[in-house]
Each structure stands twice: as structure tokens, then as C-alpha cells.
């Protein structure tokens, strides 16, 4: 199958992996003072920190799956770079959903993550995308793009906005997504995974995990 079509399939919000339950911590950010005006800079901050970590992890997981090496220490490296338990849990929930879908459609893709009890989303996505023939740059762009769309779609549900404005934010973030992909596309080993933390997003994610007043799980 053409990798471009596979990329479209994985990037589509209609993929049944519960993407609609995610806000990329935007719900907590808006609850704590972020305004719609700040969303473009919020996207940039994510692409340079937590999403950079996720993209780097996915690229290294893809490489390991391709060459038949274990993924366990990739997830150890990811967890060491993700000090927030709320963010780890959210990633693992999404990893579980993607794994469930892949079990039905591409069961052979999951062999590399078989040894992991609760793999991160990045590990599952890395294994699946490699199996489906996506290159590492495409995978990194997918992670960045999905993150941007997740935040913008969630903000549209939380704040009264013209949808064209939100799509404009996505379009405006595309160069930043390309830069992220260029930074991580050639990574091969867990120690190379970027480690840029975002103390503010981590604090928001932790607060969101224990509130009952929320539309989005994370």
C-alpha cells in the first residue's frame, strides 16, 4: 500500500483511537488562564517540548522495530523524559487504543511491542508506522500534526471560535512541525531522544487528572 495513503489513514481524526477524548492539555490550560489568543504560542511550546519528546520516541521505536531490536529501553527513556504521571497515563491510554485497532487490522505490526505491558502511544505508533511503510520523517510529522490538530479541535469545543481561525492556527504551525520532524527524523537510539520538559504543561496535566470538571480526559 502507498505510504502516503497509510499516513492519511493514521492522521485522520476518524481513526477509532479515541482521539476525541484528548485536548493536548489545552482544556487545563484554558481553565488556568490561557486564552484563545495564546493558542499559537501554546502549540509552539508543545512542539518544542512534550511533543518533541513524543516524536523522538516514536522515531526511535520505529527504528528499533524495523531492525528487530527490543523496545523496552525506548519506553524507559520516554518515561524518564516524562516526569508527569498524568502525561504518561494519557499516552499509555492512547497506546492501548491504537494497539486494539492494530490487533484487528495489522496484528503482525505489534510483535515489537508484545513484550511491553503498557506501551506508550509513541512506541505503538512507531511499531505500526514502520510496519505500514512510513518513513521516520513522515512519522515525526504525523506526531506533530496530530498534536496540533488535537489542541485546535479541543479549543474549538471549549471556546466560541470561527473554525477557520483554528484551521489557520494549524496552517500557521506547519513550519514548526516540519522543523520538529527535521530534528528527530534521524534518531536511532534511546539516549538521543530529546528531553525538553515543560513544567507548566506538566503542572496543568497533573491538575486536570484529578478534576471532575472536564470535557476531555487529558
Amino acid at each position: 500500500m502507498h505510504p502516503e495513503l497509510m499516513l492519511m489513514l493514521l492522521a485522520d481524526a476518524r481513526l477509532p483511537v479515541a482521539g476525541h477524548t484528548q485536548s493536548g492539555t489545552a482544556e487545563a490550560a484554558l481553565a488556568n488562564g490561557l486564552t484563545a489568543y495564546d493558542v499559537p504560542s501554546y502549540l509552539r511550546t508543545r512542539l518544542r517540548s512534550v511533543t518533541l519528546v513524543e516524536a523522538g520516541t516514536a522515531v526511535v521505536a520505529r527504528h528499533r522495530a524495523q531492525v528487530g531490536e527490543p523496545l523496552a529501553d525506548v519506553d524507559v527513556a520516554w518515561a524518564a523524559r516524562t516526569p508527569s504521571g498524568a502525561l504518561r497515563q494519557s499516552s499509555r491510554g492512547q497506546g492501548r487504543a491504537l494497539r486494539r485497532l492494530a490487533e484487528r487490522l495489522w496484528p503482525d505490526a505489534l510483535a515489537p511491542v508484545g513484550e511491553l505491558r503498557t506501551p506508550s502511544r509513541a512506541a505503538v505508533l512507531g511499531a505500526v508506522s514502520g510496519y505500514l511503510g512510513l518513513g521516520s520523517g513522515s512519522l515525526a510529522r504525523l506526531v506533530g500534526y496530530d498534536d496540533v490538530q488535537t489542541v485546535c479541535a479541543a479549543v474549538l469545543k471549549l471556546a466560541p471560535l470561527d473554525p477557520a481561525v483554528a484551521t489557520g492556527w494549524v496552517a500557521g504551525a506547519l513550519p514548526e512541525i516540519a522543523a520538529l520532524a527535521a530534528e528527530v527524523a534521524d534518531l536511532k537510539t534511546p539516549d538521543q531522544i530529546p528531553a525538553v520538559g515543560c513544567p507548566q504543561i506538566e503542572a496543568w496535566a497533573e491538575a486536570h487528572a484529578v478534576t471532575s470538571r472536564r470535557l476531555f480526559r487529558a
Binding site: N32, S41, Y42, R44, T45, R48, S49, V76, A77, A80, R81, P83, D191, P194, A195, V196, G197, C198, P199, Q200, A203, W204
Partner: peptide
């Protein structure tokens, strides 16, 4: 700031905080 901690051979915390006038508003809210 780059921090890394290894406990009994396993990395347990790795963090980079590149803080300046452009990044700090986002990273530190």
C-alpha cells in the same frame, strides 16, 4: 539546564530546560 539521573544503571529522569526570553513564557507559563 540539562539534568540526568541514572539509578542502578537505569535512566530515571532526563530533562532539558532551554530557558530564555522567548521560551520561558511557554515552558514556565
Amino acid at each position: 539546564q540539562h539534568s540526568s539521573a541514572v539509578l542502578d544503571g537505569v535512566p530515571v529522569l532526563v530533562e532539558d530546560l532551554p530557558l530564555d526570553a522567548t521560551t520561558a513564557p511557554g515552558l514556565l507559563g
